[in-house]
Design a protein around this nucleic acid. Structure first.
Lengths: 126, 126
DNA sequence: ACATTATACCTAATTTTCTTATGCATAAGA
DNA sequence: TCTTATGCATAAGAAAATTAGGTATAATGT
């Protein structure tokens, strides 16, 4: 009884991240040029004040899928005795990144339009 | 060869809807008071100009889950010889609706912060 | 010196949820 | 009368995340 004992939960319920993980990863790579897996998790965590925390069990398989789809390519780099695997966008990966980011912003607008008036006009129940 | 032949695709790739279906349904019910399944699909479709189209295969099981969880309750109504099943929020459903809607808006802000600069500062690749 | 935490990768079993494909039935419209 | 719209439902399969491990090196604390 010594591992991962407490989860102080300031983060989202994570339901929402489901549809957006790919968008996050590709957009980040588009912005940063190249990153390695662990770096992505840390960067997202810091930049969102811990609100979005990618799990490695979700991230690594995704990176592998994206590489298999030809959206990413890798290069390994030796850091001491360890190996880092850097990912960067291919051309089609870059296109995907652009369109997914745009799509999210459109979607986000649509959703807000759909959800709004909600807090203004609460249900008959209240 | 006569059914559902063409899909004119003006809608989102649907990846994004995955995490938000529950939010949509609960928020809509909070706003409208009560709705039946088919009505929800039509309402969402119209209000988003066809960009978000809920499939019945996703919606009905969700409604059943939410009812089982005690977030929704139902009442049946006879329309001619057919039966409509109206859903409305319970108290805890209403709470959930409020917090999910708020969470989405927070999430959406966080995402935009994370994705922004992206189109302004395109990848080295371009 | 030893233990813990951080860095860094990975996978496998399970669960959850969506898609796709049906099925049934009544009502309305062409 | 044939098709589309309304209205419910479920079941098989796919997709993707969670959970829970595993391995190993480097750094830090005590």
């Amino acid at each position: 009884m010594h591992k991962k004992l407490m989860y102080v939960c300031l983060m989202y319920s994570n339901e929402l991240i489901k549809g957006t993980l790919k968008t996050i990863v590709l957009s980040l790579l588009a912005k940063k040029g190249r990153m390695y897996g662990y770096e992505i998790t840390q960067h997202v965590k810091e930049e969102t004040d811990g609100k979005i925390q990618l799990t490695e069990g979700a991230l690594y398989p995704l990176l592998h899928r994206l590489e298999a789809e030809g959206l990413l390519e890798t290069e390994k780099e030796n850091i001491g005795k360890r190996v880092r695997k850097y990912y960067r966008l291919t051309e089609s990966g870059n296109n995907q990144a652009t369109s997914l980011a745009a799509e999210f912003q459109e979607f986000s607008k649509t959703m807000n339009r759909l959800l709004n008036n909600f807090s203004l006009k609460p249900s008959y129940y209240v």
